[in-house]
Design a protein around this nucleic acid. Structure first.
Length: 542
RNA sequence: GCCCCUGUAGUUCAAUGGAUAGAAUAAAUCCCUCCUAAGGAUUAGAUACUGGUUCGACUCCAGUCGGGGGUACCA
């Protein structure tokens, strides 16, 4: 069955052409005030300039020329400034409910059918445990991957990390220092060393494994640290049900020669030069304000080089869509990556870079400045232990990524019992409970349901909400803002709880009961699907 | 200094340029002989400031003032 909104859009655009009016982008949306109807359009208002006429008159002319399916529309009105409003008949909603119950995966779309997407997220270097800041990235990325899958894409979840740079060297030196310290030998802790206790634990495990035989600069300090930290990171992610398909590291691109090749190609384009003992990328030639160092005078490339090679590699792998999820601190870095690729004639139009703003952590009303190096952070594990994976996921997804959100950890602990995610889960649990009761009533088992019996305003309002779900999935695909789903599901749960309070499902009237059970099942489908996208569990009991 | 985000109820956040700006918390008051009260109903409360564009602005533009992030031969 075709959505009523697309039917109306078609009818409106036909009316425009029959009136010889200029064609316009037609948008239909539910008005804030439901007295105006279920859908309205400002089409006539946008035509006032073109036609130089009163918008009310234009609207009236459009309505007079409108051919719409009468059985699905109760009333068409023209109001104040020039809106055209449609009141949709209950019959339409009754049919929609039937569809929700019969369609395979209600809400899923096919705009990504036969397409492949790569979502790169987390990508924290293995220098310490994941923090709350990484949590926002992790949950955001996983939800975006989910939403792409719901739109038909085949998605690769990818984790990229730098394992060749300065940070890893300092990590190694930090472990080494703790190693000698714990053996009672002389040691020198690096100036910018990692001070967390996890470093001491790693040093201890090196002692347990290799005894006191290791010398300075042994490669095993790093390999042990990397392995141990990575295990912890993977464990943390798995508590949030986040599983990656690919782990890609920087070293690979040195080994495959892709970095040398990249540099050679840029040099061919005259975009590389030497100055002060370093190698520079001539980004000013491409319109940037300053050139960037590509290879330091120590001979070590800066992160831009492997990052660029990595992105070229992703493009070469032929994805239709590449999504990068970065914290706001990467604001300045990714444009250089794209710039270099564009300079080589490589299109980056299918790369979508999402920047989320930082989480400001508050503790007892005070801002906590987090630093992995200084071991001043709250780990993701601690948070998950405190409030549970569902709450953590919901918390990170319920706000737009452009919001700088304040996270008061004490408040989160205090309020975890009345966290908004329970509102959604509770609706689901209530549904399951009703269905359980219904199953035990014999008189309900062999009846068919008739959705036409649903006429209570709470019932219709609930179906109206369910009807929007596919639209929501589509809009999140375009905006890549998963919080739209959590906002929507909150409304779904709200409509359901109202319905629950007003309309008893299991009544003396078996026909009505069957119809309401159908509605409850439809609601369950939407809540289940929505929670699945957010990666949050849908409990049957609470 | 320059660049990017951002400023909405006491607080944390919503709102494809549309009509009366929504929730959640915190406050006040109601509702369980009835499928789970982790719920429902009611009351009170907000677009930082000044201009501009528009039929119409929380939304777009300019400026002012505040918050965050960048501006590295760190990532």
């Amino acid at each position: 069955m075709m959505k009523i909104s697309s039917k109306l859009t078609q009818a409106l655009s036909k009316a425009l052409s029959s009136l010889k009016f200029p064609s316009k982008e037609i948008s239909l949306s539910p008005p804030n005030n439901s007295e105006f109807g279920d859908l309205s359009t400002s089409l006539a208002l946008t035509l006032t300039k073109d036609l130089n006429q009163n918008p009310i008159e234009i609207a009236t002319m459009i309505v007079d020329n409108l051919k719409i399916p009468k059985n699905l529309i109760d009333e068409v009105t023209v109001t104040k400034p020039g809106f055209i409003n449609f009141k949709i008949s209950k019959k339409y909603y009754h049919e929609i409910l039937n569809e929700i119950l019969n369609v395979k995966k209600y809400g899923s779309g096919n705009s990504g059918k036969e397409k492949r997407a790569n979502v790169e997220f987390v990508s924290a270097n293995p220098t310490g445990p994941l923090t709350i800041g990484h949590g926002r990235n992790a949950v955001l990325g996983d939800c975006i991957a989910n939403i792409l899958e719901w739109n038909g894409y085949s998605v690769t979840r990818e984790y990229y990390y730098n394992d060749a740079g300065r940070q890893m060297r300092i990590l190694s030196q930090s472990v080494e220092a703790r190693y000698f310290e714990q053996l009672g030998k002389k040691f020198l802790f690096p100036e910018d060393g990692y001070q967390g206790t996890y470093i001491k634990n790693i040093a201890q495990s090196v002692i347990d494994k290799y005894g006191n035989k290791l010398k300075k600069d042994d490669a095993r300090f790093l390999s042990e640290a990397e392995q141990s930290i990575f295990n912890d990171i993977k464990k943390s992610l798995s508590t949030l049900n986040i599983i990656f398909d690919e782990f890609v590291n920087e070293k690979t691109f040195y080994e495959t020669g892709e970095i040398d090749q990249l540099l050679a190609e840029l040099k061919n384009k005259d975009l590389i030069y030497e100055k002060d003992g370093a190698t520079w990328f001539k980004s000013t030639a491409l319109g940037k304000e300053q050139d960037r160092v590509y290879i330091k005078k120590t001979g070590e490339p800066t992160y831009r080089v492997p990052d660029t090679a990595y992105h070229k590699n992703k493009i070469d792998r032929g994805y239709d869509l590449i999504v990068d999820i970065f914290g706001a601190d990467h604001m300045d870095t990714y444009p250089d990556v794209l710039l270099a690729l564009n300079a080589l004639g490589i299109s980056t139009d299918h790369i979508k870079v999402l920047l989320y703003q930082f989480v400001t952590l508050m503790r007892a009303g005070e801002k906590v400045k987090m630093s992995t190096r200084k071991a001043n952070f709250v780990t993701l594990d601690e948070l998950v232990d405190e409030v549970g994976a569902d709450v953590v996921r919901y918390f990170f997804i319920m706000r737009g990524m452009n919001s700088h959100l304040n996270f008061d950890i004490d408040l989160a602990k205090d309020q975890s019992e009345k966290n908004p995610v329970y509102y959604l889960q509770y609706a689901h649990a209530r549904i399951c409970n009703i269905l359980k009761h219904a199953d035990s009533k014999k008189e309900l088992t062999d009846l068919d349901y008739d959705t036409n019996l649903l006429n209570h305003s709470c019932e219709i309002e609930l179906i109206k909400n369910l009807e929007k779900f596919p639209e929501i999935i589509k809009s999140v695909h375009n905006s890549l803002e998963p919080h739209i789903i959590s906002t929507y599901l909150h409304e779904t749960a709200n409509r359901f709880h109202k319905f629950y309070a007003e309309c008893h499902v299991l009544t003396e009237d078996t026909n009505l009961s069957m119809a309401r059970i159908a509605l409850v099942k439809g609601t369950k489908i939407v809540i289940n699907n929505g929670l699945e996208i957010l990666g949050i569990s849908a409990p049957e009991k609470m």
